[in-house]
């Protein structure tokens, strides 16, 4: 029964991927990673330049997952209460309070999309931290629960004006940080310019088959995946070595160009981060019809689940993306399994 369940859900997952790939072209790897995050029940942070399709990608997934969808734009004057409620004067001339984006869909909230999260103030980040970690919120003398919620957020790393760096504690709450880059394929680039179906995003999103997944069953099925996909002792040792290498890269002979490795890493991956990495690796194994995790499953999610958790010396923060990518690539090249 479990095998059939796994196969059925795998089919749904692949259908969702196909649907999203229809509207967001040339982004197969990010689409696969977001699918993994959905089934691993992890929050996703997208990082990329302006206008590369981050929002479209997340909206397409939201339509496929189903359930309640809320969105908020990060701005410098956004306050935490803006996420919870807003007040206005009604037609009757009296003040009214209505639910904000977090509360509007109630328990059915499946996707909370925070656009340009790094434009919001640290107070907002702080509220979001709790919601992401505990999926609860206290408001109006009541504890609100969002059991099916996944936070999708995006940020633009290039533009630094009027932005607030997301603290490492907040970054750590995200299962993955996925870079979105413009596809290199000339045909795809040409299609994005000239194909009129890409001009109207709303119409484009409407072409995605809605409710491919049953959002309220994802939590339970996620547990099935995690229990059914095994990890051998050899793989445990391999993952442990990877973790150690992120903490003390010099012990594994890791070097990064023009970087003093003794000063680079202030903190390696966190236990939560490594746990999330293995959750994601299990989902990748399931999507590839495997019953156990292999090193390739870890490699498929290693950069995206670990890079944003590394805490570097401030002198290297400006080159974070480049250094993290080279360091993690070198770790994979240096650590052997078995």
């Amino acid at each position: 029964m479990s095998d059939r369940l796994l196969a059925d859900w795998r089919q749904h997952a692949l259908t969702l991927e196909t649907e999203v790939n229809k509207v967001v072209v040339g982004q197969q790897n990010p689409v696969r990673l977001i699918t993994i995050a959905i089934f691993a029940r992890g929050h996703v942070l997208l990082e990329g330049d302006v206008g590369v399709g981050k929002t479209t990608l997340l909206r397409a997934f939201t339509r496929g997952i189903g359930g309640g969808y809320q969105r908020i734009e990060g701005t410098i004057d956004l306050m935490p209460n803006d996420l919870v409620y807003h007040t206005y004067l009604g037609e009757d001339g009296k003040p009214h309070v209505s639910a904000g984006p977090l509360l509007m869909s109630g328990e059915d909230l499946s996707v909370f999309f925070f656009n340009e999260i790094n434009r919001a103030r640290p107070q907002v980040h702080s509220l979001l931290l709790r919601v992401m970690a505990e999926r609860t919120l206290s408001a109006f003398n009541k504890e609100h629960v969002f059991p099916h919620m996944i936070v999708f957020a995006d940020r633009n790393q290039v533009e630094k004006e009027e932005t607030f760096e997301i603290p490492s504690a907040a970054r750590d709450r995200f299962m993955m940080e996925i870079p979105i880059v413009v596809p290199n394929d000339d045909d795809i680039m040409s299609g994005l310019m000239f194909d009129t179906r890409f001009h109207n995003v709303d119409t484009l999103i409407d072409t995605v088959k809605p409710d491919v997944l049953k959002f309220d069953e994802l939590n339970a099925f996620s547990g099935v995946i995690q229990e059914s996909v095994e990890a051998s002792k050899t793989l445990e040792k391999y993952a442990l070595n990877l973790w150690k290498a992120t903490r003390k890269p010099t012990d594994f002979g890791i070097k990064v160009t023009n970087v003093d490795m003794n000063r680079l890493v202030l903190a390696g991956a966190s236990p939560r981060g490594m746990s999330m990495m293995l959750r994601a690796a299990r989902v990748n194994a399931w999507l590839n019809e495997r019953t156990a995790i292999t090193p390739e499953d870890i490699h498929a999610v290693f950069h995206e689940t670990v890079a944003h958790r590394l805490v570097f010396s401030p002198v290297y923060e400006m080159r974070r993306t480049e250094i993290a990518r080279e360091m993690l690539s070198n770790i994979i090249n240096a650590v052997a399994a078995p």
Binding site: P295, E296, A334, V335, A336
Partner: peptide, 23 residues
């Protein structure tokens, strides 16, 4: 068998100068 496969992995890694995986 495990010892033999491990030795082969080590030889592949040494030859390549990196860890070689199926991927």
């Amino acid at each position: 068998l495990q010892q033999a496969i491990t030795s082969m992995h080590q030889s592949l890694n040494t030859t390549a100068g990196m860890s070689v995986f199926g991927g």
